[in-house]
């Protein structure tokens, strides 16, 4: 198992390295000028290029960039091209905001989704089952930002229960609406998946055997059915966690949350493209994605012995 984890870790690090390299080269060799040439004179641009080290050979630039990430955690001499704010100073607050709201959403979504799915599977083809199906269809079909718009419209504008914009002094109160709207997609996916898995397990032979031996009710469900039905849910959870970080983009923009999503949107859709931010955030996003995938793979291997066996063989 340790060997498997190490191998996966090595692959993940290699992947992140390659992505960083490719992103770096792409951003550097792309045609176009990173500076708004109509507002800056040639001398200013030359000075700025020298300051950011853009005239060095690309290999030197890349090595410096990587060195900077590890030595002082700054992404190059990275600061916004437009307001000069260094990435290093805004990043921690943004990441913590995004993670707390995303975490709340995934927690809420998983719990509600599991409960809904289990209820639906136990009352198959009954009212609750239909209700669960309708919820999951709505959750999959309507984007999270639409929920956000309407929640904001009704609960902050028509009835003022929650603050209209994100306010970090009232974190819990203002995190409710974005967390709910973000979690709806995961509720839908998890509920549908749990239901299908449970129905499949409930039809299997070993459950029939357990019933024949006289087991029924809660012990049968928790000890026999759920244990096997819940394992594959880890695989659905992985993309959901990553999606919550990227899907939070628009929700963060709408609700004015200072998170990495909003940072990214501002970098690509603001008054101009902010190369430094795009590069840094791109690396962070890819690293997050790879890390989550790695953790999920390992957890899955720990949960399900069958995976471990095949991994050893392969």
């Amino acid at each position: 198992m340790a060997k498997y984890i190490l191998k996966r870790l090595g692959l993940a690090i290699l992947t992140i390295f390659i992505i960083t390299l490719v992103l770096f080269i792409l951003v550097r060799i792309m045609p176009g000028n990173p500076f708004p040439s109509e507002r800056m004179s040639a001398e200013q641009i030359a000075a700025k290029r020298l300051e950011m080290g853009l005239d060095d050979p690309i290999v030197v630039q890349f090595i410096n960039y990587i060195k900077n990430i590890f030595v002082n955690g700054s992404f190059g001499k990275g600061s916004s091209l437009y307001n000069g704010v260094p990435i290093k100073s805004v990043l921690p607050a943004c990441i913590s905001n995004s993670f707390r709201i995303g975490g709340m959403a995934i927690l809420f979504g998983t719990i509600v989704g599991l409960i809904l799915g289990i209820c639906a599977a136990l009352n198959k083809n009954h009212f609750l089952d239909v209700f669960c199906t309708v919820i999951s269809i709505i959750g999959v079909c309507v984007p999270s930002y639409v929920f956000m718009i309407y929640l904001q419209y009704f609960f902050s504008y028509k009835i003022t229960i929650f603050p209209f914009y994100f306010d970090k002094n009232q974190f819990l109160l203002s995190a409710v609406l974005p967390a709910i709207s973000l979690s709806l997609f995961s509720i839908a996916t998890i509920a549908r998946f749990t239901r299908n898995e449970m129905v499949e397990v409930m039809d299997s032979d070993y459950v029939l055997l357990a019933q024949a031996k006289g087991m029924h009710g809660a012990p049968l469900i928790t000890k026999h059915i759920l244990r096997n039905a819940l394992i594959p849910i880890v695989t659905v959870l992985a993309p959901l966690i990553v999606d919550l970080l990227t899907g939070a983009l628009v929700v963060e923009k709408i609700y004015g949350i200072n998170g990495i999503g909003k940072l990214m949107v501002d970098a690509i859709a603001g008054e101009g493209i902010d190369y430094n931010y795009v590069l840094a955030l791109g690396i962070i996003y890819s690293a997050l994605y790879t890390a989550v995938m790695l953790v999920v793979d390992v957890v899955y291997g720990l949960l399900d012995p069958r995976i471990r066996v095949t991994a050893k063989r392969g």
């Binding site: 990227t246 983009l249 493209i273 795009v278 955030l281 791109g282 890819s286 994605y289 995938m293």
Partner: peptide, 12 residues
């Protein structure tokens, strides 16, 4: 393993 958002922003 590159999120779609990163691809879009680099393209942008």
């Amino acid at each position: 393993s590159v999120p779609r958002l990163v691809i879009v922003s680099v393209l942008a």
